[in-house]
């Protein structure tokens, strides 16, 4: 909730209480006054409770949207990275550096997903590491390390397709999980 919303809510409560007090002054018996006062208190509590939960829900949705945007960004960048490898646009050194960048981003994201949304079944970094090992452990990567151009062999490329598909599957599953929390 924005500050403006809080202000309107506060003004509404004050006006309601004022009207109720004016009505209260018209009541003569003590028991009627007590009953009337309890109604005022219950109304105020109800308003505050609704405001609290509405605010919490709004904050929770914002947080989920933030994480979903972050994950979508990683997916987009990762898809581009894998395509660059397949298109022979990266040297082995560049590939290593990019894997490290992704590794750090993934781990930071996983940390906050675990602590803020209590999600424990997150496999983005695990899947990234499998792809990293496939490529950097390959015969062609190790034997063409000093080359400007680096091309995957067909067998490595086929395995990469499967692992990349699994990576994207985990990303999509994670987004679904976040929406369910």
């Amino acid at each position: 909730m924005k500050a403006k919303d809080y202000l309107y809510m506060f003004l509404g409560v004050i006006i309601t209480i004022t009207i109720l007090i004016l009505c209260f002054q018209g009541i003569s018996s003590t028991s009627d006054k007590i009953a009337f006062a309890s109604i005022i208190v219950n109304v105020v509590i109800a308003v505050l409770v609704v405001a609290y939960f509405q605010n919490r829900e709004s904050n929770s949705r914002s947080l989920k949207d933030y994480f979903i945007n972050q994950i979508s960004g990683i997916k987009c960048d990762y898809d581009k990275f894998i395509q660059q490898i397949k298109d022979e646009k990266l040297t082995p050194n560049e590939i290593k550096k990019k894997f490290k960048d992704f590794s750090i981003k993934n781990q930071q994201l996983e940390y906050f997903l675990k602590t803020e949304l209590k999600l424990n079944t997150i496999y983005i970094q695990e899947q990234n590491r499998k792809i990293h090992k496939l490529i950097t452990n390959s015969y062609e990567f190790n034997n063409l390390y000093d080359s400007i151009k680096f091309a995957l062999e067909n067998s490595t490329n086929n395995e990469l397709i499967i692992l990349h598909k699994d990576f994207n599957h985990h990303i999509t599953s994670l987004i679904v999980e976040i929406n369910k929390t």
Partner: peptide, 10 residues
């Protein structure tokens, strides 16, 4: 470092 190949660590 500037990143690792898994073969280096292996």
């Amino acid at each position: 470092t500037a990143g690792y190949a898994s073969s280096f660590l292996d």
